[in-house]
């Protein structure tokens, strides 16, 4: 039907009943799906570990008992605490506050919290390097036996992930400094980096339980 002058009504009446939808953030959903694939990456590493445990139990028990559990526990606590500081940074980013308004932690912005998180993550990595150096000194190396390979592959790939997270924190902090008007786009990058950081943290808790507690 055409509007040729013989009709008086409009042919399209726009729908007014469609409500306002809080559309899911595509960056956040994409990050979660990617982290899902990371679950499967670490599944392969966990599978190596459990297979070794079931096929060579004597080697496994002997080598696992040489690990320094209290040291790793302290390191784990440092990494877990960094997840909390990271989340406070996200809260600051969500109220669109990049910088601090005072010295008190309750007045800190995203940048300050993420610097603290970076420091804690860097301490974790430094602790892991120290642990590696000690273990290699004691004769557990990547090429010493199957246990060494499995240990360094799993913890090493996790360490690389933490290092990647540290670089991501630096890039997000840089955005906090570079941007004139801190908006939802900057908050989104802070939030997705925190997703990644929490994920890597949870993977470490899993690795810690499997490697140091379960033995």
């Amino acid at each position: 039907m055409r509007h040729n002058g013989s009709v008086t009504s409009t042919s399209i009446s726009p729908a007014t009943h469609v409500p306002v939808v809080n559309r899911p953030n595509t960056v956040a959903v994409g990050t979660i799906v990617w982290l899902g694939s990371e679950v499967m990456f670490f599944a392969g590493l966990f599978a190596i570990y459990f297979t070794l445990r079931s096929t060579s139990p004597e080697l496994f028990t002997f080598e696992a008992n040489r690990l320094n559990v209290p040291f790793a526990l302290v390191n784990t606590l440092i990494l877990v605490s960094s997840s909390f500081t990271c989340q406070f940074g996200v809260f600051a980013a969500e109220r669109l506050q990049p910088r601090s308004t005072g010295w008190k932690p309750s007045q800190w912005g995203m940048v300050e919290w993420f610097f603290l998180t970076y420091a804690l993550g860097a301490i974790f990595i430094a602790g892991q390097i120290l642990e590696y150096a000690t273990l290699v000194h004691e004769g557990i190396a990547l090429d010493s036996n199957a246990y060494g390979s499995a240990f360094y592959m799993t913890t090493g790939f996790h360490g690389l992930h933490v290092t990647g997270g540290l670089i991501a924190f630096l890039l997000v902090i840089g955005r906090g400094f570079a941007v004139r008007n801190f908006g939802h786009r900057e908050a989104t990058s802070a939030i997705v980096v925190s997703y990644y950081w929490h994920f890597v943290d949870v993977v470490w808790i899993g690795l810690f339980l499997v490697i140091y507690v379960l033995k």
Partner: peptide, 8 residues
């Protein structure tokens, strides 16, 4: 118990 498949 085959561990790799169970973990996966």
């Amino acid at each position: 118990v085959e561990p790799a498949g169970t973990v996966a």
